[in-house]
Computed example of a mutant assay.
Amino acid sequence: MRIALFCHSLLSDWDHADAHFLRGIAAELDARGHDVLAFEPEDAWSALGLVAAYGPDALREAAAVYPRLRPRRYALSTLDLDAALAGVDVVLVHERSDPELVRRLGEHRARTDRYRLFFHDTHHGLITDPAAIVRRDLSGYDCVLGFGKSVCDLYLSRGVARRAVVWHEAADTRLFRPLPQVEKERDLVWIGNWGDGERTAELHEFLVEPVRALGLRARVHGVRYPDRALSALADAGIEYAGWLPNHRVPDAYARARITVHVPRRPYAAWLPGIPTIRPFEALACGIPLVSAPWADAERLFSPGRDYLVARTGAEMTEHLRALLADPEFARGVAEHGRRTVLARHTCAHRVDTLLDLIDELLLRPCYRLGEAAEDDVERSGPASGVRRRDPGRYRSPLA
């Protein structure tokens, strides 16, 4: 098949974690022999910010990691969809795409009716900025791919989508894997942006204060750290090391003994079942993980076995202490988490779901826009209920 992907940026993950999963999906599709065409705007702020901060070599480095992914940059004002989508069978549109592009693609699909059109949402905007999402016209789209059931439920109940399928993010296990040859250099590493006030209190409680209490050798990577955050890190003895290209994250995990997950408040409080991509990647790398609270409503993992759960800062401190004091215990947690990811949560699994859905769309009638039957919200992964008509046909060459 020929598959077109419209996204904000594929090669730049500077302040843009959506690139992680999209690159993994594109690489997996390519490895299976599908023709993947990636489109991104020529003025993408992530790519421009990356080059401004680190120079063009930073983009070239990412391109070398994914040599077969060559995104085509466009100006929306001159984009010719007839030419761009000639011979395309499937179009995947990420939610960070310009609303005008989203609208035009829906109209083009309705007019031509010769490819399947998906809208892919990996953000909390339906909760935090619902008006912006509801104003989008998705009537020409075959389906919304939401990265959690709670997101899909909102699309259906608010009448924005005719159909929604759960498509959780996952780890690109070609890249995210243990590196046992790398020597440990520190106790803890945390990789993530400070954010826009969405988890400031949580980062103090579950990261800064436990590190201070235990006197750990710790490093933090990310962007958008205000001066007060940098001061808090320094006061706790935490090294701030700035942005880290995502393809270097496996090495960073390999050099640390443990990591933590501190979800943003919209996910922890209002969108249960969505861990975001970092836990998938960390567990794939085989590093012991302790998570601040989030509701695993869709039973993606086995909390307490794949990772430890800290309900309070005091529990986080005790879990970190226990893992560091008992290497065998830490190894058991890490291995269990990695086995779960390999069994259920790789980009290969998500591509299986996508390809099965494409086949199913040829047979299943569409529902009226806004009809929220329970069967419309389908799940990704082994428990999806999506009938696999020919599993061998889509098996990953690296499985």
Rank of each mutant, 00 (worst) to 15 (best):
I3G: 00
A4V: 06
L10V: 07
H16S: 01
A19S: 12
F21H: 01
L22C: 03
R23I: 08
A27I: 02
E28P: 00
L29N: 03
L29H: 02
A31M: 08
A31D: 07
R32E: 06
L37D: 13
F39V: 08
E40N: 07
E40K: 01
P41Q: 05
A44P: 10
W45C: 08
L48I: 14
L50M: 14
L50S: 07
V51K: 12
A52L: 09
A52S: 14
A53I: 10
D57R: 00
L59R: 14
R60Q: 13
R60V: 09
L69Q: 12
L69K: 05
R70G: 00
Y74N: 09
T78R: 08
L81Q: 05
A83I: 10
G87V: 14
V88M: 05
D89Q: 09
H94G: 11
V102I: 15
V102L: 05
R103Y: 14
R104Q: 03
R109P: 11
R109F: 11
F118H: 11
F118V: 02
H120C: 11
D121I: 13
H123Q: 13
T128C: 12
T128F: 11
D129Y: 15
D129C: 13
I133T: 08
Y141Q: 04
D142C: 09
F147S: 15
G148R: 01
K149P: 00
K149L: 10
K149H: 11
L156E: 06
G159R: 00
A161F: 00
A164W: 05
V165C: 03
V166R: 12
H168E: 13
H168M: 06
R174H: 05
L175Q: 04
P178V: 05
E183A: 15
W190V: 02
N193V: 02
A201Q: 09
E205H: 01
E205T: 07
L207Q: 09
P210L: 10
A218Q: 10
R219E: 15
V220N: 05
H221L: 09
R224W: 07
R224M: 06
L230D: 12
L230Q: 08
S231M: 14
A236D: 08
Y240T: 11
N246M: 11
R248K: 06
P250F: 11
A254D: 03
R255L: 03
A256E: 06
A256I: 04
T259S: 15
V260E: 01
P263H: 05
A268K: 08
A269F: 06
A269Y: 05
P272L: 05
I274C: 05
I274G: 00
P279L: 01
A282K: 00
L283E: 01
C285R: 00
A292S: 08
A295F: 02
L300V: 03
F301R: 06
P303A: 06
V309P: 05
A310L: 10
A310T: 08
G313S: 09
A314S: 13
M316F: 08
T317S: 09
T340S: 11
T340N: 12
A343K: 00
R350L: 04
R350C: 04
T353P: 00
L354F: 02
R364E: 15
Y367T: 06
R368K: 03
E371H: 10
E371C: 12
R379V: 04
R379P: 02
A383E: 15
S384W: 10
G385Q: 07
D390K: 09
R393C: 01
S396G: 01
